[in-house]
């Protein structure tokens, strides 16, 4: 424990050193001020003391982004799993669904802007639409493909044992697709987060981490942009390492692949 803490602190120190050296180099070459670790950390302290960014606290910006992300992600997860299960069970629906979702997956998140604006105008719902549309394909594809890949013998064995549909779904099917589904959820979450920031920059309202980053272009308050980027990375690390990392380990162990 002590050793890992020392490594983490050492790593953080090395990161700050690299950042500082990089900042010095940029200032020397470009002759413009670069947000240094000391200034950014001081700004973080002030923000925690109650200083606002564009009339809103850092906490509100952060929570607003999280809220948008979660709502849109839940919509994408629900649609992805329901349609994925449907297409996983029906051959023709799978063929159509796979083509459609492959096309959707190829769409860059920001390419949804015109559709979002036509359908919902500028604002909250357009942002949610963009996130949901981007997070949906990996969840859908992984659910449907995992279902298609279950051996037909599994279903025949279940029939032989006279299992009810409910038990078949929860005891046999769900564990069979759990790992693949988790990969889809993981990808969907990451893509959704990236698109959220981009969507907030373009069609979002005046609150959110993406908004603070895009606003720094005009206010030249790059310290705030750096803090927002730091928070974005932090959310990514938490989701990846502490949520999906742990979940994947547990599921893999449970379904016999760990």
């Amino acid at each position: 424990m002590l050793k890992s803490t020392a490594w983490a602190l050492g790593g953080f120190g090395a990161f700050l050193l690299c950042w500082w050296l990089f900042g010095l180099s940029v200032e020397a070459v470009r002759h413009i001020p670069f947000p240094m670790p000391k200034d950014v950390l001081m700004r973080v302290y002030l923000l925690f003391q109650g200083e606002s960014i564009y009339d809103t606290s850092l906490f509100s910006h952060f929570m607003m982004s999280l809220k948008r992300w979660m709502i849109a992600y839940c919509i994408a997860t629900f649609c992805g799993i329901v349609l994925g299960v449907l297409c996983g069970f029906f051959e023709k629906a799978y063929k159509v669904g796979l083509h459609v979702s492959t096309v959707l997956q190829m769409m860059p998140g920001l390419a949804w802007i015109p559709f979002a604006m036509i359908l919902f105008g500028i604002g909250e719902r357009a942002t949610l639409f963009m996130i949901a549309m981007s997070a949906f394909p990996p969840i859908f594809i992984h659910t449907a493909s995992a279902l298609r890949s279950i051996s037909p013998q599994t279903f025949l064995m279940a029939k032989m044992m006279n299992l009810s549909s409910r038990r078949l779904f929860f005891t046999i099917i769900m564990p069979s697709i759990a790992l693949s589904l988790l990969t889809g959820l993981r990808l969907g979450l990451a893509i959704g987060w990236r698109v959220l920031i981009a969507a907030e920059m373009v069609v979002g309202s005046s609150v959110g981490l993406g908004y603070t980053i895009i606003q720094s272009r005009w206010s030249l308050d790059f310290e705030v942009a750096f803090i927002s980027i730091g928070l974005i990375c932090l959310v990514g690390i938490v989701a990846e390492k502490w949520v999906f990392g742990v979940l994947e380990q547990k599921v893999a162990k449970r379904v016999g692949n760990g």
Partner: peptide, 11 residues
């Protein structure tokens, strides 16, 4: 029916 791989569910 008992298949070659015993047909047990790993989880």
């Amino acid at each position: 029916f008992i298949p070659q791989d015993s047909g047990l569910f790993a989880w």
